[in-house]
Design a protein around this nucleic acid. Structure first.
Length: 514
RNA sequence: GGGGUGGUAGCUCAGCUGGUUAGAGCAGAGGACUCAUAAUCCUUGGGUCGCGGGUUCGAGUCCCGCCCACCCUACCA
């Protein structure tokens, strides 16, 4: 079963923050998990260069848009190493040559379906905000943000007949052909559709876009609305629209004929992904995504992330201090399925120490150490398990891959990582109840039974650690690799060495009590 | 204004279609062990399940109203 996974493409008016990190790590965990199961995976991320917010940010900094976009896009792409990401492809809507032809093709396809039309539009536009305001949103007729009276802008724009597609979208979502997760988000989308869909504007005047963006095919005075443009990245990255209908094998394989086409997005952009985008594809005669997984937001120290709030957390610095595994683990283990999650360095450190250092790390260390101390690193695997408790223990690890797989299939990372932690706990308990050190003493005292028993117990534990290493690979790749390496395979284990030392809150991160 | 989500032990959260004395982890208290990263294991205290009504033999779980937090959205009255 093929999996094509995407993140949303963030606009790059600033460096990446921890909020986007959640999204890309979730997508990465999905990608790694499926690859680990032997499924063909293609994982795309990228940047939205064409947003007007980029234009605004560049102006504020006094640099050209190209410069600003290139610089920040590099920062997003640069998350790869520090966060241990495995995306196969990275698209930039501005500079990537494959994008623009695809957007043009998509436009023409919608046009041919008769879904595009030009309409006169009038509204109160605040130049500072770069957006239109409804009368009701104005304070004393002035922009609430800038305190300036918005100018009355009247222009012709292209519109998309979204109103045509409500029924079909509803049907697709109800039938599950277009899956929206979690369920509460699905219901939200359905009620949004039921409340009535209105055509939406998909172009801006060239002047208002400051000449930035993709010109409308056949109407150079207009620029394609950034959302219409940006959403297209999911297929233009696969070669849709490349070189005047040259063959696009990737597009065929991963999209048209692919099994799963999964978008991972944040709650703020559901309407675009679950309504606008599918409608655009229906219009263009292109297949729809199969899954849209929606996550909520990360707050920091109890507050929404914002540059003006001064509480942005640099994920690269965080990964540098505490490691990619710790950051990934927190994002996947502690962020709830529904509801925002509050990030603090203390929580990151505590979670990593409890689960990874004290739990798994210590387990691996004690097991491998005993294998060396009592057996010189050799593992003797018993033919059959006669003891019921042994069988029950082995069953925990036989069942673990399926349990993790099901949780991941539900996009429930918390449940997936939780299942792993419970297995770790079971293994630590198994050590305590069997007390290998006592068995070793008994063996030394001449008990053959104790010797055999020791082999059995150690082999069960080594096997457990190997399974844990494999299941952890999607979530904490670095740690998982060390576990796998140390636990070896077959009848030997590598020398013992801590796979995950405890973390401490860095001096610079210590919050002074307010 | 409309729609939505959340409000469960000090903290972070589980609790599917209503059903025995409401759960887990962490933190707190006590104990055990020594293979291990002062790690692990066992025991234990702690909750008016936001508030107020209602339906029911029975509600954290359904219905109504309200409060708080957040999200999306809106010129119709």
């Amino acid at each position: 079963m093929t999996f094509y996974l995407t993140t949303a493409i963030p606009y790059v008016n600033a460096a990446p923050h921890i909020g986007f990190t959640l999204e890309i790590v979730q997508a990465d965990a999905l990608a790694r998990h499926k690859r680990g199961r032997g499924e063909p995976v293609r994982f795309l991320t990228g940047t939205d260069d064409n947003s007007l917010k980029n234009v605004k940010a560049a102006a504020a900094e006094g640099v050209t848009v190209e410069e600003l976009v290139a610089r920040n896009a590099a920062l997003f792409e640069g998350l790869r190493g520090p966060l241990d990401l495995s995306f196969d492809d990275f698209i930039r809507t501005g500079s990537d040559p494959r994008h623009r032809p695809g957007v043009e093709k998509l436009w023409r396809a919608c046009e041919q379906s008769g879904d595009l039309y030009k309409k006169h539009y009038e509204g109160r536009y605040c130049v500072g905000c770069e957006q239109f305001y409804a009368e009701a949103d104005l304070a004393d007729g002035k922009c609430p943000e800038h305190g300036v009276e918005p100018q009355l802008v009247a222009e012709e724009n292209w519109f998309f007949r979204l109103s045509r597609y409500g029924d079909r979208l509803k049907e697709l979502i109800i039938s599950g052909e277009l899956r929206v997760e979690p369920e509460s988000r699905r219901n939200e989308v359905l009620s949004l559709i039921e409340s009535g869909l209105h055509d939406f504007s998909i172009s801006r005047s060239r002047a208002r876009a400051h000449g930035w963006g993709v010109p409308v095919p056949g109407d150079p005075d207009q620029v394609v609305y950034v959302w219409y443009d940006a959403l297209g990245n999911y297929i233009t990255a696969l070669g849709y629209g490349s070189e005047d209908d040259a063959p696009a094998p990737d597009f065929d394989r991963w999209w048209t004929e692919g099994d799963r086409r999964v978008h991972v997005i944040g709650k703020g952009i559901i309407r675009f992904h679950a309504v606008y985008w599918p409608a655009m594809l229906l219009s263009a005669g292109v297949r729809l995504p199969s899954d849209i997984f929606v996550h909520d937001y990360v707050t920091v120290d109890g507050r929404k992330i914002g540059k003006s709030l001064g509480n942005t957390v640099d994920p690269v610095a965080l990964a540098g201090t505490y490691g990619a595994d710790a950051l990934r683990w927190w994002l996947l283990r502690e962020v709830p399925r529904v509801g925002d999650a509050d990030f603090t360095v203390e929580r990151l450190v505590t979670r990593a120490n409890e689960d990874l250092a004290n739990g798994l790390g210590n387990l691996v260390n004690r097991v491998v150490s005993m294998a060396w101390r009592y057996r010189d690193g050799a593992v003797v695997i018993p033919d059959t398990l006669v003891d019921a408790a042994d069988r029950a223990f082995a069953e925990v690890f036989d069942a673990l891959p399926a349990a993790v797989g099901e949780a991941v299939a539900d996009f429930d990372f918390r449940a997936a990582t939780g299942a792993i932690v419970r297995a770790v706990d079971a293994a630590n308990r198994f050590v305590e109840t069997n007390r290998p050190w006592d068995l070793a003493k008994g063996e030394k005292g001449g008990s053959l039974v104790d010797g055999v028993r020791l082999d059995t117990v150690l082999s069960l534990l080594v096997h457990a650690c190997r399974v844990l290493g494999a299941e952890l690979a999607a979530f904490t790749p670095g740690l998982a690799a060390r576990v796998a390496e140390q636990c070896g395979e077959g009848t030997t284990v590598a020398p013992a060495a801590p796979v995950y030392p405890r973390l401490e809150v860095a001096e610079s991160d210590r919050v002074t009590a307010a």
